[in-house]
Amino acid sequence: MDETKDPNYTYYEEVYKSFLNSVDSYDLYQMDNDELEERLYGYMDAGRVALETYISADFFDDDIEAKRFNFKMKRYEIILLAKSMKLEWIREQKHSQELMRKSIGDRDYSSTQGYQ
């Protein structure tokens, strides 16, 4: 892929950067680039489904090979998509925490976490 970015498109990395600036996750920073990119794409893919009803832009109009959308997003659209990604990330964290609680038991989990 050519390293120069066409200014007429929004690239995934712009959305990913906005998302990563909004979360504090040791796990994400421990991943290698390929694994991180796959995870971020998953959050973005799930996040854009949530926005489909509310935003007129077609977030599914993208070029996966070029890692970009086939249009230029407005700044607020990038932020909304990043926030939608964050919601997916939070859901994953909550689900992971619930699974941990079930696996070690509620009482042990509460004493380990130090709160209810």
Rank of each mutant, 00 (worst) to 15 (best):
residue 1 M to R: 12
residue 2 D to S: 10
residue 2 D to Y: 13
residue 3 E to K: 14
residue 4 T to L: 09
residue 6 D to K: 14
residue 9 Y to L: 04
residue 9 Y to C: 01
residue 10 T to K: 12
residue 10 T to A: 07
residue 10 T to D: 04
residue 11 Y to M: 11
residue 11 Y to F: 12
residue 12 Y to M: 07
residue 13 E to A: 13
residue 14 E to F: 11
residue 16 Y to W: 10
residue 16 Y to H: 14
residue 18 S to C: 15
residue 20 L to E: 14
residue 21 N to W: 03
residue 21 N to A: 13
residue 23 V to P: 08
residue 24 D to P: 02
residue 24 D to A: 01
residue 24 D to S: 07
residue 24 D to N: 09
residue 25 S to H: 00
residue 26 Y to W: 05
residue 27 D to H: 06
residue 27 D to E: 13
residue 31 M to T: 05
residue 34 D to Y: 07
residue 34 D to F: 04
residue 35 E to Q: 05
residue 36 L to K: 12
residue 36 L to T: 02
residue 39 R to M: 00
residue 40 L to K: 04
residue 40 L to I: 05
residue 42 G to A: 07
residue 42 G to E: 08
residue 42 G to N: 05
residue 43 Y to V: 00
residue 43 Y to G: 02
residue 44 M to C: 12
residue 44 M to T: 04
residue 44 M to W: 02
residue 45 D to L: 10
residue 46 A to K: 14
residue 46 A to C: 09
residue 47 G to K: 05
residue 49 V to K: 14
residue 50 A to G: 04
residue 50 A to E: 08
residue 51 L to F: 01
residue 52 E to A: 11
residue 53 T to S: 04
residue 54 Y to W: 09
residue 55 I to R: 15
residue 56 S to R: 15
residue 58 D to H: 10
residue 59 F to T: 03
residue 60 F to T: 01
residue 60 F to L: 07
residue 62 D to Y: 04
residue 62 D to L: 12
residue 62 D to M: 06
residue 63 D to V: 13
residue 63 D to H: 03
residue 64 I to H: 09
residue 65 E to W: 08
residue 65 E to G: 00
residue 66 A to G: 04
residue 70 N to I: 01
residue 72 K to T: 04
residue 73 M to S: 12
residue 74 K to V: 08
residue 74 K to T: 10
residue 75 R to C: 02
residue 75 R to Q: 08
residue 76 Y to P: 05
residue 77 E to G: 11
residue 77 E to R: 13
residue 78 I to F: 09
residue 78 I to W: 08
residue 79 I to M: 13
residue 79 I to D: 14
residue 79 I to G: 06
residue 80 L to D: 08
residue 83 K to V: 07
residue 83 K to S: 10
residue 83 K to F: 07
residue 84 S to L: 05
residue 84 S to Y: 00
residue 84 S to D: 04
residue 86 K to I: 11
residue 87 L to H: 09
residue 87 L to R: 09
residue 88 E to N: 06
residue 89 W to Y: 12
residue 90 I to C: 02
residue 91 R to N: 10
residue 92 E to R: 08
residue 95 H to D: 07
residue 95 H to A: 12
residue 96 S to K: 10
residue 96 S to R: 05
residue 96 S to P: 00
residue 98 E to C: 13
residue 99 L to A: 01
residue 101 R to G: 00
residue 104 I to W: 15
residue 104 I to N: 06
residue 104 I to Y: 14
residue 106 D to C: 02
residue 107 R to W: 07
residue 108 D to S: 11
residue 109 Y to G: 05
residue 109 Y to C: 03
residue 109 Y to D: 00
residue 109 Y to K: 07
residue 110 S to V: 00
residue 112 T to R: 15
residue 112 T to S: 15
residue 114 G to F: 06
residue 114 G to T: 08
residue 114 G to L: 05
residue 115 Y to R: 14
residue 115 Y to P: 00
residue 115 Y to A: 13
residue 116 Q to L: 15
